[in-house]
Protein backbone atom coordinates (compact mmCIF):
# COMPACT_ATOMS: atom_id res chain seq x y z
CA UNK A 1 0.00 0.00 0.00
CA UNK A 2 1.48 3.29 -0.96
CA UNK A 3 0.89 6.25 1.30
CA UNK A 4 0.76 9.75 -0.03
CA UNK A 5 1.40 13.09 1.58
CA UNK A 6 -1.33 15.58 0.87
CA UNK A 7 -1.92 19.24 1.58
CA UNK A 8 -5.57 20.16 1.98
CA UNK A 9 -6.95 23.65 1.69
CA UNK A 10 -10.37 23.45 3.27
CA UNK A 11 -13.07 26.11 3.51
CA UNK A 12 -13.88 26.70 7.16
CA UNK A 13 -16.90 28.73 8.16
CA UNK A 14 -18.34 28.63 11.66
CA UNK A 15 -21.93 29.33 10.74
CA UNK A 16 -24.21 30.82 8.14
CA UNK A 17 -23.64 34.40 9.26
CA UNK A 18 -19.92 34.32 9.88
CA UNK A 19 -17.16 34.88 7.41
CA UNK A 20 -15.19 31.88 6.25
CA UNK A 21 -11.66 31.31 5.12
CA UNK A 22 -9.37 28.55 3.93
CA UNK A 23 -7.30 26.54 6.38
CA UNK A 24 -4.46 24.27 5.42
CA UNK A 25 -3.98 20.75 6.75
CA UNK A 26 -1.35 18.15 6.01
CA UNK A 27 -2.30 14.51 6.02
CA UNK A 28 -1.24 11.05 4.97
CA UNK A 29 -3.59 8.95 2.87
CA UNK A 30 -3.70 5.46 1.45
CA UNK A 31 -4.72 4.96 -2.15
CA UNK A 32 -7.50 2.58 -1.05
CA UNK A 33 -9.25 5.20 1.06
CA UNK A 34 -12.31 6.97 -0.12
CA UNK A 35 -12.07 10.74 -0.15
CA UNK A 36 -14.35 10.98 2.87
CA UNK A 37 -12.30 8.40 4.75
CA UNK A 38 -9.29 10.59 4.13
CA UNK A 39 -11.24 13.48 5.67
CA UNK A 40 -12.32 11.24 8.57
CA UNK A 41 -8.66 10.74 9.39
CA UNK A 42 -8.03 14.48 9.28
CA UNK A 43 -11.05 15.07 11.50
CA UNK A 44 -10.06 12.52 14.11
CA UNK A 45 -6.68 14.15 14.37
CA UNK A 46 -8.29 17.58 14.74
CA UNK A 47 -10.54 16.22 17.46
CA UNK A 48 -7.64 14.68 19.35
CA UNK A 49 -5.94 18.04 19.16
CA UNK A 50 -9.06 19.63 20.62
CA UNK A 51 -9.94 21.45 17.42
CA UNK A 52 -13.22 21.64 15.62
CA UNK A 53 -13.39 18.95 12.91
CA UNK A 54 -14.39 19.85 9.37
CA UNK A 55 -18.16 19.56 9.01
CA UNK A 56 -19.38 17.96 5.81
CA UNK A 57 -22.61 16.30 4.68
CA UNK A 58 -22.46 12.61 3.99
CA UNK A 59 -24.62 9.62 4.72
CA UNK A 60 -24.90 6.50 2.61
CA UNK A 61 -21.33 6.64 1.35
CA UNK A 62 -22.31 4.54 -1.62
CA UNK A 63 -23.17 7.21 -4.11
CA UNK A 64 -26.94 7.24 -3.94
CA UNK A 65 -28.29 9.41 -1.10
CA UNK A 66 -26.91 12.61 -2.61
CA UNK A 67 -25.80 14.07 0.73
CA UNK A 68 -22.12 14.55 0.00
CA UNK A 69 -21.27 17.82 -1.60
CA UNK A 70 -17.83 19.27 -2.00
CA UNK A 71 -16.07 21.05 -4.77
CA UNK A 72 -12.72 19.30 -4.96
CA UNK A 73 -10.01 21.08 -6.90
CA UNK A 74 -12.59 23.09 -8.74
CA UNK A 75 -14.88 20.20 -9.68
CA UNK A 76 -18.05 19.26 -7.83
CA UNK A 77 -17.52 15.73 -6.44
CA UNK A 78 -13.94 15.84 -7.66
CA UNK A 79 -12.11 14.88 -10.80
CA UNK A 80 -13.62 11.47 -11.57
CA UNK A 81 -16.59 11.39 -13.90
CA UNK A 82 -19.93 9.95 -12.79
CA UNK A 83 -18.74 9.64 -9.21
CA UNK A 84 -19.93 11.22 -5.99
CA UNK A 85 -17.42 12.48 -3.43
CA UNK A 86 -18.08 9.46 -1.20
CA UNK A 87 -17.13 7.08 -3.98
CA UNK A 88 -14.11 9.02 -5.10
CA UNK A 89 -11.00 7.13 -4.08
CA UNK A 90 -7.60 8.46 -3.24
CA UNK A 91 -5.92 6.51 -6.02
CA UNK A 92 -7.08 9.37 -8.22
CA UNK A 93 -4.57 11.62 -6.44
CA UNK A 94 -0.83 11.41 -6.12
CA UNK A 95 1.80 11.99 -3.52
CA UNK A 96 2.44 15.67 -2.91
CA UNK A 97 -0.89 16.90 -4.27
CA UNK A 98 -2.56 19.99 -2.91
CA UNK A 99 -6.32 19.60 -2.79
CA UNK A 100 -8.66 22.58 -2.52
CA UNK A 101 -12.00 21.70 -0.92
CA UNK A 102 -14.92 24.13 -1.03
CA UNK A 103 -18.65 23.95 -0.42
CA UNK A 104 -21.23 24.27 -3.20
CA UNK A 105 -21.36 27.97 -4.03
CA UNK A 106 -24.78 29.38 -4.83
CA UNK A 107 -27.06 31.99 -3.39
CA UNK A 108 -29.81 29.39 -3.23
CA UNK A 109 -27.53 27.04 -1.24
CA UNK A 110 -26.30 29.07 1.73
CA UNK A 111 -23.39 27.59 3.69
CA UNK A 112 -24.47 26.34 7.11
CA UNK A 113 -21.04 25.35 8.32
CA UNK A 114 -17.72 24.54 6.65
CA UNK A 115 -18.66 22.37 3.68
CA UNK A 116 -22.32 21.94 4.56
CA UNK A 117 -24.89 23.88 2.56
CA UNK A 118 -28.67 24.16 2.84
CA UNK A 119 -30.29 22.53 -0.18
CA UNK A 120 -33.85 23.09 0.99
CA UNK A 121 -34.49 24.97 -2.27
CA UNK A 122 -34.55 21.61 -4.07
CA UNK A 123 -37.18 20.27 -1.70
CA UNK A 124 -39.30 23.37 -2.19
CA UNK A 125 -39.10 22.95 -5.95
CA UNK A 126 -40.35 19.37 -5.64
CA UNK A 127 -43.08 20.61 -3.28
CA UNK A 128 -44.29 22.96 -5.97
CA UNK A 129 -45.16 20.12 -8.32
CA UNK A 130 -42.62 17.31 -8.61
CA UNK A 131 -45.09 14.48 -8.09
CA UNK A 132 -48.21 12.81 -9.37
CA UNK A 133 -51.16 13.40 -7.10
CA UNK A 134 -51.93 9.71 -6.65
CA UNK A 135 -53.61 9.18 -3.32
CA UNK A 136 -52.80 5.97 -1.50
CA UNK A 137 -55.10 3.18 -2.62
CA UNK A 138 -57.66 3.39 -5.37
CA UNK A 139 -55.15 3.06 -8.19
CA UNK A 140 -55.43 0.64 -11.10
CA UNK A 141 -53.47 -2.60 -11.47
CA UNK A 142 -49.84 -1.91 -12.30
CA UNK A 143 -49.99 -3.77 -15.60
CA UNK A 144 -53.06 -1.87 -16.77
CA UNK A 145 -50.79 1.01 -17.71
CA UNK A 146 -48.54 -0.15 -20.53
CA UNK A 147 -45.45 1.93 -21.07
CA UNK A 148 -43.13 1.38 -24.02
CA UNK A 149 -39.72 0.26 -22.79
CA UNK A 150 -37.93 3.21 -24.39
CA UNK A 151 -40.15 5.68 -22.59
CA UNK A 152 -39.76 3.91 -19.28
CA UNK A 153 -36.00 3.82 -19.82
CA UNK A 154 -35.85 7.50 -20.62
CA UNK A 155 -37.98 8.30 -17.58
CA UNK A 156 -35.54 6.27 -15.51
CA UNK A 157 -32.57 8.11 -17.01
CA UNK A 158 -34.07 11.33 -15.69
CA UNK A 159 -35.38 9.88 -12.43
CA UNK A 160 -31.89 8.77 -11.38
CA UNK A 161 -31.14 12.25 -10.09
CA UNK A 162 -29.89 12.03 -6.50
CA UNK A 163 -30.60 15.68 -5.72
CA UNK A 164 -27.03 16.39 -4.67
CA UNK A 165 -26.87 19.80 -6.31
CA UNK A 166 -23.63 19.25 -8.21
CA UNK A 167 -25.35 20.65 -11.30
CA UNK A 168 -25.90 23.95 -9.52
CA UNK A 169 -22.39 23.91 -8.09
CA UNK A 170 -20.86 23.28 -11.51
CA UNK A 171 -22.96 25.74 -13.49
CA UNK A 172 -21.19 29.04 -14.09
CA UNK A 173 -24.59 30.63 -13.43
CA UNK A 174 -25.58 28.42 -10.48
CA UNK A 175 -28.63 27.34 -12.42
CA UNK A 176 -30.83 24.47 -11.25
CA UNK A 177 -32.30 23.69 -14.63
CA UNK A 178 -30.81 20.21 -14.88
CA UNK A 179 -32.35 19.25 -11.55
CA UNK A 180 -35.73 20.68 -12.48
CA UNK A 181 -35.50 19.41 -16.05
CA UNK A 182 -34.80 15.89 -14.82
CA UNK A 183 -37.88 15.77 -12.59
CA UNK A 184 -40.13 17.42 -15.17
CA UNK A 185 -38.91 14.98 -17.83
CA UNK A 186 -39.16 11.91 -15.61
CA UNK A 187 -42.83 12.52 -15.00
CA UNK A 188 -43.67 13.96 -18.41
CA UNK A 189 -42.33 10.81 -20.03
CA UNK A 190 -44.87 8.61 -18.28
CA UNK A 191 -48.60 8.44 -18.90
CA UNK A 192 -49.17 8.71 -15.13
CA UNK A 193 -47.47 12.10 -15.15
CA UNK A 194 -49.30 13.49 -18.15
CA UNK A 195 -52.44 14.76 -16.42
CA UNK A 196 -50.62 17.31 -14.30
CA UNK A 197 -47.74 17.90 -16.71
CA UNK A 198 -48.66 21.47 -17.58
CA UNK A 199 -49.23 22.83 -14.11
CA UNK A 200 -46.21 20.89 -12.89
CA UNK A 201 -43.75 22.50 -15.25
CA UNK A 202 -45.18 25.96 -14.68
CA UNK A 203 -45.10 25.70 -10.92
CA UNK A 204 -41.68 24.12 -10.72
CA UNK A 205 -40.13 26.74 -12.98
CA UNK A 206 -41.75 29.54 -11.00
CA UNK A 207 -40.43 28.10 -7.73
CA UNK A 208 -36.98 27.55 -9.23
CA UNK A 209 -36.84 31.23 -10.20
CA UNK A 210 -38.01 32.29 -6.77
CA UNK A 211 -35.20 30.42 -5.08
CA UNK A 212 -32.60 32.61 -6.72
CA UNK A 213 -30.90 30.14 -9.03
CA UNK A 214 -29.28 31.49 -12.16
CA UNK A 215 -30.34 30.80 -15.72
CA UNK A 216 -29.10 28.11 -18.02
CA UNK A 217 -26.80 29.38 -20.72
CA UNK A 218 -26.07 25.95 -22.13
CA UNK A 219 -22.53 25.44 -20.89
CA UNK A 220 -23.18 21.76 -20.26
CA UNK A 221 -21.10 21.85 -17.07
CA UNK A 222 -24.01 20.37 -15.11
CA UNK A 223 -24.12 17.27 -17.25
CA UNK A 224 -20.42 16.62 -16.99
CA UNK A 225 -20.43 17.08 -13.22
CA UNK A 226 -23.56 15.04 -12.62
CA UNK A 227 -22.68 11.85 -10.77
CA UNK A 228 -25.56 10.16 -12.59
CA UNK A 229 -24.62 11.69 -15.96
CA UNK A 230 -28.06 13.14 -16.50
CA UNK A 231 -28.21 14.65 -19.97
CA UNK A 232 -28.94 18.29 -20.75
CA UNK A 233 -31.46 16.94 -23.23
CA UNK A 234 -33.79 17.03 -20.24
CA UNK A 235 -33.33 20.79 -20.03
CA UNK A 236 -34.44 21.00 -23.63
CA UNK A 237 -37.36 18.74 -22.78
CA UNK A 238 -38.32 21.00 -19.87
CA UNK A 239 -38.17 24.07 -22.13
CA UNK A 240 -40.39 22.25 -24.61
CA UNK A 241 -42.83 21.24 -21.89
CA UNK A 242 -42.84 24.79 -20.58
CA UNK A 243 -43.58 26.30 -23.98
CA UNK A 244 -46.25 23.68 -24.55
CA UNK A 245 -47.89 24.74 -21.29
CA UNK A 246 -47.93 28.45 -22.11
CA UNK A 247 -51.54 28.44 -23.22
CA UNK A 248 -52.52 26.54 -20.10
CA UNK A 249 -54.17 28.73 -17.50
CA UNK A 250 -54.29 27.32 -14.03
CA UNK A 251 -57.54 27.33 -12.18
CA UNK A 252 -57.24 28.28 -8.58
CA UNK A 253 -57.51 25.33 -6.23
CA UNK A 254 -59.78 27.48 -4.07
CA UNK A 255 -62.49 27.27 -6.73
CA UNK A 256 -63.17 23.63 -5.86
Amino acid sequence: MSDMNLTLKVWRQKSKDQKGCFETYKTLASEHMSFLEMLDVVNEKLERDGKDPVAFDHDCREGICGACSMVINGSPHGPEKATTTCQLHMRKFKDGDTIVIEPWRAKAFPVLKDLIVDRGAFDRIIQSGGYTSAATGGVPDANSILIPKERADEAMDAAQCIGCGACVAACPNASAMLFVGAKVSHLANLPQGQVEAKTRVQNMVTQMDKEGFGNCTNHGECESSCPKEISIKFISKMNREYLGALSHVQKSAAAE
Partner: peptide, 16 residues
Protein backbone atom coordinates in the same frame (compact mmCIF):
# COMPACT_ATOMS: atom_id res chain seq x y z
CA UNK B 1 -49.88 -0.60 -8.17
CA UNK B 2 -49.38 2.40 -5.91
CA UNK B 3 -45.79 2.95 -6.99
CA UNK B 4 -46.63 2.70 -10.67
CA UNK B 5 -49.37 5.30 -10.19
CA UNK B 6 -46.78 7.59 -8.59
CA UNK B 7 -44.62 7.30 -11.67
CA UNK B 8 -41.94 4.97 -10.36
CA UNK B 9 -40.12 3.93 -13.55
CA UNK B 10 -39.96 0.18 -13.00
CA UNK B 11 -38.17 -1.88 -15.62
CA UNK B 12 -40.41 -2.86 -18.52
CA UNK B 13 -40.46 -5.53 -21.18
CA UNK B 14 -40.56 -4.47 -24.83
CA UNK B 15 -44.27 -5.26 -24.66
CA UNK B 16 -44.71 -2.39 -22.20
Amino acid sequence: DQCVAQGVPFAREYSG
